[in-house]
Amino acid sequence: MDEAEIRATFSKIIKTEDVSPGIAAIKTLMQMVKVSDVTTLQELRKTMTIATDYMRDMDYPAASISSSSELLLRFISLASLDGVAFSECKRIMIDRGQMFLKKLLDGRGKIAKSASKFILDGSRILTHSRSRGVLYALKEAMGQDKKFEVFVTHSAPDNSGELMKKELDKAGIPSTLILDSAIGYIMETIDFVMVGAEGVAESGGIVNKIGTFTIAMCAKEMKKPFYVMAESFKFSRLFPLGQSDLPLDYKYTSSVRKNMILDKEDPLVDYTPPNYITLLITDIGILTPSGVSDELIKLYI
């Protein structure tokens, strides 16, 4: 597959299916493995890495793309494929890949179920921007006949919060759109904050839409719990020391990076350190921020 095809497949998947860029990346890579004509494992790896670079270069948030591709590559390297013919390898990898994908998609349901336990009758929930994980959790809770209220931030600059509100209305969940700057004002009446994540760092902190860190700080000050929904493929080995330590391709899309001076640009994401996070609700269980590193160590070492 060449560059143009990769990009086309990737965009198509994102537009037609409602999946996170990470999953779309995995699907694209799987497709590539299926149709590729390479003959050795090394070459396959190389092409996959290059494909990942192409995908990161597009104007989609790079955080989850990076982590999921990393994970898939690791997955492949862990498969015990020594001494097997390459065509056999390919078949095994494709099967494994499908299984992996299936588990990831199932994970969403698990997360929604765990998260819905935290939503009680009469809860007032604050969320930020549009997150599929949070949406599923709220829908699940609605399905359990719970009565609660959601506050969504507009979340400039792309106003994805408005999209979230539309979807909440469709699901019949009472919701209110609030200004990004009204977070401090509303926090004293909120019961807890629930956000998604684009990436989970090794420290246990998260990378998410810009504005998340502010909400987390406010919640901590007002003693409100801060819950994060994150699928396990979003775990990465990143360990940012601060906002400036985040990789550039996370913060800015590729077109922005090429054209303008970055200092004056608005970043897409920010990093929330682990001490502001109460719990991470993932498909491998409910974790405290210190548990994330444990999982990653088990995987990579």
Partner: peptide
Amino acid sequence: EQSLHQMMTSDS
């Protein structure tokens, strides 16, 4: 053992 590792390596 349920973990990221297990998801990757087991014959589920």
